[in-house]
Design a protein around this nucleic acid. Structure first.
Ligand code: MN
Ligand code: MN
Ligand code: ZN
Ligand code: ZN
Lengths: 133, 133
DNA sequence: TATTAAAAGAAAATAATTATCCTTTAAGGG
DNA sequence: CCCTTAAAGGATAATTATTTTCTTTTAATA
């Protein structure tokens, strides 16, 4: 288990055992929902409060340490902040994959066409993974 | 106010006054949240129940008459089902615009690269509209 | 090692959504 | 047009999701 103390501190987050565990789970699993995170945390912390999960998720989002991924027709998942990327989601097994897609030309064209100052792009492709089709 | 009776029936939805009004609001506003829809409906139906709003939204989604649009860092909005399109969202005034972007080549490339059978693509570009920047 | 602001945990409160139950009504057949 | 009936609406309760409050514990630092 990697030590994430400094990663947390760089985002102005105290490195508590609970946060280190959340970070480790996110690192290992990649994308995780609130309820699954809570279940996994309960295995490590006998009496962790669900409020601790929510408070940490919210604070970590505020401090850009993690990000929410809103998936069509499914619960949100959370992931450690990394460079901008898109997602591939299996509608059957709910696997979530990071994919790198160049959206620059789309963003540029759209910015010009609509006089929008586009700051973020969010692309989710949904379907069936190899196993599920 | 257009008559949406047949549109509803084509989706196996009884054409009640409440549903006709919901449809009219969606048609007029384009994209709307649950709470705003409820407020607008209350002006037309003195004692409409919030449960009626939720039950209709859910049933209309099931019957593909409307669709949910999940927006990063904001509440979901709902819209009448139309041909697949992407969205441009202003992070300040929350305006939601429909945009037509060709994602075919991205979808094809990604399908091949990851052996995914991609069924839906969902692109949201967020930033500041002309007025808000 | 002492200080302190922040975090954790427990529980209550609030918000969001769904279910239940009874009344009303849209739709279709006669 | 009436009748019939399954479905929908409204009121309210129940459930689920999330946030707040308050007290205790602890990470950070000096
Ligand atoms: Mn990701
Ligand atoms: Mn739209
Ligand atoms: Zn799958
Ligand atoms: Zn704007």
């Amino acid at each position: 288990m990697i030590n994430y103390t400094n990663n947390l501190r760089e985002h102005n987050l105290k490195a508590t055992p609970q946060r280190l565990a959340i970070t480790d789970i996110l690192y290992t699993k990649g994308h995780i929902s609130v309820e699954v995170l809570y279940e996994m945390m309960q295995k490590k912390f006998y009496s962790i409060s669900l409020a601790t999960i929510y408070k940490n998720i919210n604070l970590m989002i505020e401090n850009s340490f993690i990000q929410e991924v809103k998936i069509p027709n499914a619960k949100s998942v959370y992931e450690l902040t990394k460079e901008e990327h898109s997602h591939l989601v299996c509608q059957k097994c709910n696997e979530v994959l990071d994919i790198k897609i160049d959206l620059d030309s789309i963003v540029t064209k759209t910015s010009d066409a609509y006089h929008f100052n586009i700051k973020n792009s969010n692309l989710i492709l949904s379907g069936l993974c190899q196993n599920c089709q």
